[in-house]
Design a protein around this nucleic acid. Sequence first.
DNA 1: TCTGGGGTCCTAGGACCC
DNA 2: TCTGGGGTCCTAGGACCC
Length: 394
Amino acid sequence: MKYILHIDMNSFFASCEAIDHPEYLNKPLAVSGKTKRSVVCSANYLARSYGVKAAMPIYMAQKLCKNLIVVIPHFDLYHHYSELFINVIQTQFTNIIEIGSIDECYADITSLVNAKNDPLSIAKRIQIAIKRATGLGCSIGIANIKFLAKMGSEYKKPMGISTMWKQELPTKLWPQPIENMFWIGRSTAQLLRKNGITTIGDLAKKENKSLLQKLLDKNWVVHYEHANGIGDDTLDLSHNTPKSIGSSETFLNDTDDFDEIKGKLIELTRDSFNRLQRHELQCKTLNVSIKTPDFKLHTKSLTLTKYINDFEQILLKIITLYQNNFADKTIRLVGVSFSNLFDNRQVEFTNELFDDYYKSPDKQETSNAMDEIIQKINHKFAKNIIDTAKNKIS
DNA sequence: TCTGGGGTCCTAGGACCC
DNA sequence: TCTGGGGTCCTAGGACCC
């Protein structure tokens, strides 16, 4: 049996801003862009008391709260505080940590629990240590699996600490509306509600199993087990390289002006490309997406025969992709992203192997040589390289 | 005043290969 | 005549998270 914590920083972006600007203290504060199409990223609790919520259009937030202070986001600042709070847990408590996002993580404290230190007191110490080191508040959920720890950190905010033991499910979890269930979003919640499943308790009921199976296809088991306190307790400790990198932007006004769109495509491609390089990655698939005035998203993608890291080439392909598919469309948003990412070192290495292979008169001999090299290299990369090799040669 | 931007994962159909 | 079965990759869309 493991002891898992979920640590969730309270109104993270807004709290970081308030620490940086003491004059915002005790004033309603929202982090948001400042154009007419911006939405709220994060709001402090005072602003929330006026009804201001994340993802709400900023004009609406300002209507609800006349003296709302609006600050544009400063991601460098948030990354700084994110590293700080992770560091507190890592250096003072445990390094078995799974980083969920910029403002949350799971921590496995099983090895710290003993007769003198129960999970609740450890959680309290973590909360205090984070507050002392960063000035930031957090909520912590305590449970035996990740899902319940996550539900626990949501249970009481801000600065809450809540256990979600299995025996507490009937009183703490099951009365909650189905919408609160992690991994059940708006459309699934709607579907379930329409069919009479309105609380997490309904989801947990044995007699609803066949109904769930009918409504949710394969996923039903995971949700059913979660609602009954069964789930994953293993933390993912790898800080994985990203699977895709991209940027998008909403225009101030809908547009079909290709010069304007092209200018934005250049900007977005530049930005994504810079991040691609910072991660030392190359890509094979280019994606261009648009959002039309009816809010529908459309994507066109192009997979190349080899990995690419030349900005001019990428840009040319992106612009062609746009022109071939979306020319003359009126759009409200345009986006660029790269996927099918591969480590620079691996790309270089595989390209050399393939050149050797193609040039070689004796394919079998080269193939054997490749196998030998693959045996010797870093195990972590071997699978990717073999996969690519198979793909490319076939 | 009218609804962001960064991601991950899954699905389903079609192409293609053996 | 009427047409397999398994596998992978690509594409587009959608659900979900923060």
